[in-house]
């Protein structure tokens, strides 16, 4: 029983990371019906840039962990805007339905290669900003960093939700998601809104990168699998549902840690992908996805 609780705790931390990356997929999907398939690489770059500020890989540390986070978020936002500008905007302009898929994948590969050349191919250790001694809770061990992951991920998603609901700019983003042409008629620069959603999406991923880096290994290849699994989470939860990605992330995270222990670590990726196939077969809009209300 204690082992199960332990596995659930670890699964929650992992699941929240999936959720926050999946949330990033939703942000761009909402405004432009496109996805940044380089979300995993945005996370990886965030982690490595963060490590360069707060770790000793490039002559540092220059800053402590907490001071580094805002800089990493700015970096993530710029990186996301660049992806949109180079890879997505031209495809949207010519109304290409699939052009953005190849271009975001291509940019992801380029980012990975660049990272390998700057930071090397080996995994690096990211110094933990908090004690690495586990806390005991319900008979299980919880790393303080895992608590920070859960709180940080929730705070990030909540902040975006509040922005969307309360500020006129956030409402402009929602309007663009609802109906791009009509949003343009309101004087909203919808191209800028789409760029902004990419910036926000990569910022979220970069933030997730520095959250997860201290409990895992940091390196150029860390993002690919995370990005893919978060994509599965976005499909499982539904590309339009905020609560869906949290539930989807937790389901996948816990499924992986329990499978890893009770069956075999070799199979830990299987349950999530089986779930993905099931959802696609039974409820393609995702567990929480809903069809929009449209009156004609």
């Amino acid at each position: 029983m204690e082992i199960l609780i332990q596995l659930i705790f670890s699964g929650i931390a992992l699941g929240m990371i999936y959720a926050v990356i999946a949330f990033g997929y939703q942000l761009t999907f909402a405004t432009s019906a496109t996805l940044n398939f380089g979300q995993g690489e945005a996370l990886m770059l965030g982690a490595l840039v963060g490590l360069s500020f707060a770790g000793n890989v490039l002559g540092g540390p220059y800053l402590n962990f907490w001071m580094m986070i805002p800089l990493v978020m700015v970096f993530g936002a710029l990186q996301g805007a660049l992806v949109e500008f180079i890879g997505v905007r031209p495809a949207i302009k010519i109304k290409s339905e699939f052009g953005w898929i190849m271009s975001t994948i291509a940019l992801a590969i380029i980012f990975k290669n660049v990272a390998e050349n700057i930071w090397g191919k080996d995994d690096l250790k990211f110094p933990s900003p908090v004690s690495e001694a586990p806390l005991h809770f319900l008979g299980a061990n919880v790393l303080p960093m895992e608590i920070i992951i859960v709180v940080g991920a929730l705070a990030m998603m909540l902040a975006v939700e509040i922005f969307n609901r309360k500020s006129i700019y956030g409402k402009a983003v929602v309007a663009t998601s609802n109906d791009r042409d009509a949003a343009g008629l309101m004087g909203i620069n919808t191209r800028l809104v789409i760029t902004f959603s990419y910036a926000l999406s990569s910022m979220t991923a970069a933030f997730a990168g520095v959250l997860i880096a201290p409990v895992t290994l940091t390196g150029a290849t860390m993002g690919s699998v995370l990005g893919l699994k978060a994509f599965a989470v976005a499909i499982i939860g539904g590309l339009t549902s905020g609560i869906g990605v949290i539930v989807g992330g937790l389901i996948l995270g816990i499924a992986e840690t329990t499978t890893g222990f009770y069956i075999s670590t070799g199979y830990k990726d299987v349950p999530g992908l089986v779930l993905l196939l099931l959802v696609l077969a039974v409820k393609p809009a995702g567990l929480f996805g809903k069809t929009a209300i449209k009156k004609v």
Binding site: I168, K171, A175, N178, G187
Partner: peptide, 16 residues
Amino acid sequence: FPTLSVADNIRLGAFP
């Protein structure tokens, strides 16, 4: 805008 409230729809008309 179907997912925004009536008041928010009206406000967005004043976006500029």
